[in-house]
Amino acid sequence: MNAVWSYLVAIAVWPGLLFAAPLGWLELWFMRKLVARLQGRQGPPFFQPFFDVMKLLGKETVIPRGVSRGIFLALPLVSVAAVTAALAIVPLPGNPVPSLPGDVVLLLYLMEVPVLCEVLAGYVSRSIYGQVAAMREAILSLAYNLPFLVAIIAMAQMAGSFQMRALQEVPYGLVHLLAAVTFLLALPARMKLNPFSIANAEHEIIADSHIEYSGPPLALFKLSHAIEVVLLTELFAVVFIPATPWPLVNLVVYLVAGILVLGGVTLLATTTARLRLTQAFRFYWVWGGLASAITMAATLVR
């Protein structure tokens, strides 16, 4: 199989769209069901996220007056493409893409693209609520990216290389634990869950920055979010869970670890209330900064 084909397979089939979309829907359903059960409700049926996306695909798109049509429609596409490409880089067992030197940098960059798309979507929509959401998202990303990036960079420092496969092969140690905690600190904000659901605070600013989106573009944003959830959980599993020599066992372990992490952040989300932007920012720069400093110090000590 030559390189082009392996990239195409990785992006379209495994671990890309064809696999990630159903898994993302499963994980979203799991989160919604868990929230409902914790609140004493029955919760949505199993296929709910799938129905939501299919229904949106069958709806009309309303483009607000005065909005540039091209960028309005391009943003969701770019967002989905970026997360799918990012997922294709993650060395899940059986991923056909060859490991490149420096693919960690590419991965981190691609993971920022959906955030950028959300911010732009808010500003492009010309809705005042969308703009507030975009501003909140942009500021929050300055906060949660500190622990998030440090967790990955600390692992790269341990491996002595910015290559995903090398990150996986770092002998297990204290830095793994510290970096995992730092990563988990950033996770709720990255997933826009309580107490950091500031950019999508539906009680304050009606909706997130997709407020003016409808129909298929909104469906693409939902799909992008679903894949992003898969990406974040699987990235956590691949980097911080020790790998066994058997690929199939690894796969099962990664999927289970992803579900467990999701269960944890959902539990946190249901038991907390939303913070203010300043509080969240301070939290990440004080406690996230402290965790980052300790993690980096541990990589130097060895």
Binding site: R41, Q42, G43, P45, Y129, I206, A207, S214
Partner: peptide, 22 residues
Amino acid sequence: LSPRYDAEQLGIELHGTPKHAD
């Protein structure tokens, strides 16, 4: 939206904006 009636079982979601509504 409360536990007693739990409209989410029918897939119902309350949205603030008409752009997302059916």
